[in-house]
Design a protein around this nucleic acid. Structure first.
Lengths: 240, 240
DNA sequence: GAGTGGTCTAGACCACTAG
DNA sequence: TAGTGGTCTAGACCACTCC
């Protein structure tokens, strides 16, 4: 009556599945138990489990393969490659992407970063500065801030050597999977240093992209600030 | 066997519902028949109708209200106000938005617009140029290109006088509902004319936003090119 | 053929809205 | 109280994958 705390069964199942994902019991890329299995385990009908999985699949935490099973989503697939880096070449896809590590250091969180990542100012951080080069053309200059406690063993060598997205490294080596992110875009003028790296004049217009990434349960775990050169490239946004 | 043309029942129902929406038989904002009604009409179970409606709701073509019914989505609601204009003020929401009509004319489609909107070069177009002002601050300068045949009776007065989004005007007066859009973003420098209107120096960095909007069945029906001032405002993007 | 996800049904009951 | 969408069940059958 007075307490409107009604929660459908499938939501409760969804919570249980989320906890299993979050705990790392089911690793990225591997299959989770079948719907029938989960149904009998949780003492509900298959349809109820199905609805819970449906929601997790639509949030890109799981993906289904008819006839094979349901799997934990991963950042290792080609499909995801442009889901978090929404930059495309004016003429089709950008070619091979090369990642140049410019700087790797440990630092203390400033007030701004601390607020964004729900940390305390002064908390230990890892800072990565790098350049993304598309087919020989330097296009993205970015700085990545990560909580030092979560990424304790991260080294410059690991970042330098990894293949594919940073997020792939994070999930395979540190068990932290980025689930979604929010970006704020502004236009900015290149300063001398960033212009030199991106091979444009000082004052050249660039896209300034600020990102906060979240893992399970909407926990923010990464802050990025990037400068994108948009000569020959564009940022793609879908409105629905 | 050889023809893999298998289509689930609910997809066929979805197609029927889409046709009803597209034909204008169900007007924006009004209720569609109940699930039970549709189920008996199409000779399927309620669950099958439900799944079809679920998909249309997730695509924002319909929305449900428990206890009341299922309604045709509309651009008239507050909720939608920042779904297609993804600009927010650094400090909270932008205040009242004022729309200043700068120019209204008829023209012929150039090669580029024709390609974007799947028209022929030389086809009649309506061109709207306007300025969006947030609480006294000019922030967006944009040009809107529309197929002349679809918006035959559109007048400068109608555009000037309307309240709310242009898309609201389009759907109430012309029966054309914008369903989704794709935007390409670049950074650009203000020229003299646009700088004057947006009250920035010539050369000031701006966000250049190019949009193609689609109505039902992925038919493109609008092309826009806008310049956004991002001093005090940002473009919000969600990655999932 | 066995196991998985995907579709469809029929019926029961719950939550919400409105007269 | 009647009507709507929302949840849950149990069972049948289909489509796909792999052995």
């Amino acid at each position: 009556m007075s307490s409107p705390t009604f929660s459908p069964l499938y939501q409760q199942i969804k919570t249980l599945l989320l906890e299993a994902l979050q705990s790392g019991a089911w690793r990225p890329g591997t299959a989770i138990p079948s719907e029938m299995d989960l149904a009998s385990r949780y003492k509900v009908s298959q349809g109820t489990v199905r609805k819970a999985i449906d929601e997790l699949a639509s949030e890109n935490l799981l993906f289904r393969r008819q006839g094979k099973g349901t799997f934990v989503a991963t950042h290792g697939e080609r499909q995801v490659r442009f889901r978090f880096l929404r930059l495309a070449a004016d003429s089709g896809e950008p070619g091979a992407v090369e990642r140049q590590l410019l700087e790797f250091r440990r630092a203390r969180a400033g007030a701004e970063v601390a607020r964004m990542l729900e940390l305390k100012a002064g908390d230990p951080m890892v800072v990565i500065k790098r350049l993304l080069v598309f087919g020989g053309d330097p296009v993205v200059l970015e700085e990545v801030w990560l909580p030092g406690t979560l990424f304790k063993g991260l080294t410059a060598a690991a970042v330098s050597d990894h293949r594919g997205a940073l997020y792939n490294l994070f999930e395979t080596q540190f068990g932290t999977r980025m689930v979604r992110a929010e970006e704020k875009l502004k236009a900015a003028a290149a300063d001398k240093a960033s212009g030199a790296l991106l091979k444009v004049e000082s004052g050249h217009p660039l896209l300034a992209v600020e990102r906060v990434s979240y893992t399970y349960s909407d926990k923010p775990v990464e802050w990025r600030r990037g400068l994108y050169k948009t000569d020959g490239y564009f940022y793609k946004s879908e409105l629905g």
